[in-house]
Design a protein around this nucleic acid. Sequence first.
DNA 1: TTCATATTTGTAATCATTTTAATTATGTAA
DNA 2: TTACATAATTAAAATGATTACAAATATGAA
Lengths: 150, 150
Amino acid sequence: MITNMKSLKIILEKEGIKPTYQRLKILEYMSRNTVNHPTVEMIYERLLKDIPTISMTTVYNTLSAFLEKGLVGAITITGTEMRYDFNTASHHHFLCKQCGRIIDIEVTCPFSEGKKLQHGHRVEEIHGYFKGICKDCLKDMKNSVKESNP
Amino acid sequence: MITNMKSLKIILEKEGIKPTYQRLKILEYMSRNTVNHPTVEMIYERLLKDIPTISMTTVYNTLSAFLEKGLVGAITITGTEMRYDFNTASHHHFLCKQCGRIIDIEVTCPFSEGKKLQHGHRVEEIHGYFKGICKDCLKDMKNSVKESNP
DNA sequence: TTCATATTTGTAATCATTTTAATTATGTAA
DNA sequence: TTACATAATTAAAATGATTACAAATATGAA
Ligand SMILES: [Mn+2]
Ligand SMILES: [Mn+2]
Ligand SMILES: [Zn+2]
Ligand SMILES: [Zn+2]
């Protein structure tokens, strides 16, 4: 989590992105919400509190710029909307079909190591994820059973 | 590739799906196009030749039914539209950013083996894929360079 | 200040998918 | 066969995420 505006500004300037207020706040939000894997909607709704005039378009454009410069990663896992990730280090995900949360997973295996060639194709991105029921939802399901069979 | 309607019919009946003409043709198309990872659009356009009255909705509904029964897999990798896969065995994919093709990749590693628990989460699906430039597009790019520097 | 340019904003358009309701096909009882 | 119930298909409308476009606003140099 990067709390001071100074270092956020430096990150943007290093990539040749002019550090406007909305861009800084979007980057700040991303750095504070690494576990969320937020949607554009989530970012927009939160930033409305600080910047009542901000538009969806700005959030979309800014994230596209960040993505292009490699400041964030993008995950197409739900099939309905894009999820963004401030953690650009190679890691995998778990999507819970029950609660919809996307959880980071550490999996070390040949699949997730290095962007080399695969069957002659040039690899630029590596994505891996699981779908299922998360730990917490499993617990909730067990509790529900208990409650109905006391 | 399953060519005869008889065995296609048996597949659907085994899953409790009434083998209508459109459903059989959609399943036949899927079994013939395992390398494509087709979109609903692709399936619809092809089937129009055989069934001029077929609707998009039927293709959507049928694939949802197939998916529910595990007769096909679904891939959310492009971020724009769903791609379907007749090959339900565990395997990975490569998406070419140039030509848009989705290519099967055999990767054997702990990540792709068995649907067990991961960090306490119940795993029901495993997805892995690479993005980059495919072998053929790499070749084309080299040829373009040659042509402009003869 | 004035002008050029970049950024932000609001609105409209696009595209994949879902919902809804009408139409058609299928099977069975009378 | 006919009549009716049910399932499947179809067409049309609605939805939701994203993109395109054009107007408004901010920034910064001359
Ligand atoms: Mn992550
Ligand atoms: Mn495949
Ligand atoms: Zn959950
Ligand atoms: Zn290619």
